[in-house]
Simulated scan of single mutants.
Amino acid sequence: MKIEQLKNELKEYAKSIGVDKIGFTSASPFDEMKNRLKRQQELNFQSGFEEKDIEKRTNPKGLLPEGESIIAIALAYPSKMKDPPSGKKGERRGIFARASWGLDYHAAVRERLDLIEKWLRERVPDVVVKSMVDTGELVDRAVAERAGIGWSGKNCSIITPEFGSYVYLGEMITNIPFPPDQPIENACGDCRLCLDACPTGALVDAGQLNAKRCIAYLTQTKEFLPDEFRTKIGNRLYGCDTCQIVCPKNKGKTNWIHGEFMPDPELAKPLLEPLLKLSNKEFKRKFGSMAGTWRGKKPIQRNAILALAHFKEQSAVPILIELLKEDERPVIRGTCAWALGKIGGGKAKEALHEALHHEKDEEVIREIQKGLALLEES
């Protein structure tokens, strides 16, 4: 079978299994991305979640020596929720980023790549492949851009004409020399809405992100959130969509396509106070199918406490006092202390003074002192 014919048939098959976009590129090195990653390292802009070896991230043949081409795929995910619940006084809600709505996308994209691999093996028995989804070595965006899936926007997301930037990406290196597709011309123009809207200034320039300041990264950390970011995350429990929400290319892109990505509103916008009482087992049972819970419950609960402080939610004071007294985790106790100072009131003040006498952890003591200082300011 001619490779061009195989490529066309694969495109049709991909569509039949729920792949929204497929593109092809060579397995040659990503030299421009290599230079950008080196610059990121020099500036200390990396989050630490990435593969540290730049060569692995930019040289496909280093991962699969027989590699001749790369197949890139994209699956669209929803940008809007049907019947979203509203938070109100006494019943405040947090929010998971859109990329975490519905089924964990790693499993969904991996399933499609596995089906493509099986399809190829039936037609090319000696095919060799290596597939990756998000946590793989290659930079998904660099592959998708060169394969014509979309262009790399100023917000560091791949933007597709059809689905905006609300797409999950995956790729497969293979020894089949598929003819490459043409990249899409960058259509951001002189727009800089994403740069101006970033809550923490993490988008330092077009296409350049200081990941350590990005709320999407900060919500996944497990330690105390640095003071300067505590009032910036709002009610976000995981991730941040601001730079996507303001993007004109995302206007009107609802992407209600795949049932598996449609959110359960009670999971995507959960009540905050009940979150704080969940055991590990309960948390996994309720939220375990979502991509945004891969770091466990501690970051989510810490962020929920900060969200209650953001709302100055008086109804949360009793549970925050309880956690301040009894939780075994210093980060949770300390964040509660800060939140109580932010919310204010006589009971909060009394609890902080009492905690100051009993607390042994130095970091938590500092947070109690911060909470008391906030009470003095209010």
Rank of each mutant, 00 (worst) to 15 (best):
A76R: 13
H106Q: 06
S26W: 10
A27D: 01
D83K: 14
G102S: 10
P65I: 07
R39E: 15
R57M: 09
K56L: 15
R36T: 04
L75N: 08
Y105H: 07
E42C: 02
Y77S: 12
I70W: 02
L103M: 10
F24E: 04
I73A: 08
I73C: 04
F96E: 12
S69E: 05
L63T: 04
Q40K: 05
F49A: 15
Q41H: 03
N44G: 10
F49Q: 10
R93G: 06
K82C: 03
G48T: 02
L63H: 05
L75Q: 12
S69M: 05
S79Q: 12
P84H: 12
F24A: 00
M81L: 09
S28L: 11
F45H: 13
P65M: 04
A27G: 09
E66A: 14
Y77M: 04
N44V: 00
I70C: 03
E42W: 02
E51T: 03
D104E: 05
E91C: 05
A97T: 13
A72Q: 11
S26F: 00
P85M: 07
S28N: 07
D53V: 04
K52V: 14
K89A: 10
L103T: 07
P60L: 08
E42S: 12
G102D: 01
R36W: 13
A99F: 11
S79Y: 06
N44E: 10
Y77F: 15
E91L: 07
E68F: 10
L43I: 08
K52F: 04
L103Q: 13
E66M: 04
E68Y: 08
A27S: 12
S47W: 02
I54M: 13
E66R: 02
D83L: 09
P29V: 06
D31Q: 07
T58H: 07
E32W: 02
P78D: 05
M33C: 08
G94L: 01
Y105L: 07
R39F: 08
P60T: 04
K52G: 13
F30L: 13
K89W: 09
